Simulated assay, not measured.
Amino acid sequence: MALAVGIDIGGTKVSVGVVDQEGRVVAKSALKTDLTVPPGHMVARIAESVNGMMAEHGWNYVDMMGIGIGAPGPLDPKAGKITCPPNLPSWKDFTLAAELQKRLPCDIRLENDATAATLAEKWLGAARETDHFVYLTISTGIGAGIYLHGKLITGATGNAGDAGHIVVDPAAGQCTCGQYGCWEQVASGTAIARQASELRGKPVTAKQVFELADQGDSEMLALVNKVYRYVGVGCVSLINLLDPDMIVIGGGVSQVGAPLFQAVQQYVSRHALNPSGRETAVVPAVLDQDAGLIGAAALIHREYA
């Protein structure tokens, strides 16, 4: 059985798993992304998790085709390095692939996490039948993967798709990247929690925001509707720029479900410039929270470049 290790590094957690050639996750675990320790310590924990899965299932590294890593950008995929990720500030210029290579005897490929998830949704998910789509993840931050004309579009340095830093509302405050009013500054899970906490004067999570809105809390409902509008604004920008026939949305915020997708679809149908763009389907990711993990493994299993 051909197996690959997938590692999905996020701002709050790291998912680690083993995926077979059919895209089945045959083992997985999760670690908290600990920003209080140097990134090398996190790599040691990741390697320990991989070794633990290998031992538990009786696999040898000769059974592994390789290790794929999806990580937040900006990054340098050719050098296997994370350069300056806003949500992982202590990982600046960290040679992730080389550090992991010291601990695990496999070939390693590194790509942007949203790019990896895009590959997974094309392979097994919502975008199997289209050659023109954008995958959007709304979680700690906002990222996108671009798949057009039957192939991933990764750009000159592998960093295409940093959609979270499209400016959608300059009046909304300064983003961690230094600009004012970035998309993830107003519509990511982190942004939702921050805005709600400011309104209430105490810590409020993004999950609590949606729960309170569902219960009829007018203040939280107004915030949620504003977030939906911001998601729509960003999607219209992507549609006008890239002309996909589908936008697939994943990540933690997408778990709110139908209300988000209905609101964004309605916004797109009214505001996309091209009449055909107004018909762009906005759909949930099929692979849900495993998209990044499967996508990381797909960097090994699938031809994509």
Rank of each mutant, 00 (worst) to 15 (best):
M1D: 06
A2N: 09
V5R: 03
G6H: 04
T12R: 11
S15H: 08
S15Q: 13
G17E: 04
V19C: 02
Q21D: 11
E22W: 00
G23R: 01
G23Q: 01
S29N: 12
A30C: 05
A30T: 11
K32A: 14
D34N: 06
D34C: 07
V37D: 00
P39V: 01
A47S: 07
G52M: 13
G52R: 15
M53R: 05
Y61T: 12
I69C: 10
G70M: 06
A71P: 03
P72F: 00
P74W: 03
K78G: 14
A79M: 14
K81C: 15
I82F: 10
C84E: 13
C84S: 15
N87M: 06
N87P: 01
P89Q: 07
S90F: 03
W91R: 14
K92H: 09
D93M: 15
L96A: 14
C106F: 02
L110W: 04
L110S: 09
A114P: 08
A117I: 03
A120Q: 02
A120E: 00
G125W: 06
A127M: 06
R128C: 15
T130K: 09
D131Q: 12
Y135S: 14
L136G: 12
L136T: 09
I142T: 08
A144C: 13
G145E: 06
L148Q: 11
T154V: 14
G155V: 03
G155H: 02
A156I: 04
A156Y: 06
G158H: 03
A160C: 08
G161E: 05
D162Q: 15
G164L: 08
H165I: 07
P170S: 13
G173W: 00
G178L: 03
W183I: 15
S188L: 07
T190G: 06
I192M: 12
I192N: 08
Q195G: 10
E198F: 00
T205N: 08
Q208R: 12
A213Y: 03
S218D: 13
S218G: 09
L221M: 12
L221G: 12
L221Y: 01
V224C: 11
N225D: 12
V231H: 11
G232I: 04
V236P: 09
S237L: 13
L238Q: 13
D245W: 03
M246I: 10
I247P: 10
G251T: 05
G251S: 10
A258G: 07
P259V: 02
Q262L: 11
A263G: 06
Y267N: 11
V268F: 05
S269I: 01
L273P: 00
L273W: 09
N274S: 15
R278F: 04
T280L: 05
T280V: 10
A281D: 12
V282A: 08
P284G: 13
V286L: 14
V286H: 11
D288R: 15
D290V: 08
I294Y: 05
G295H: 05
A296C: 06
A296H: 07
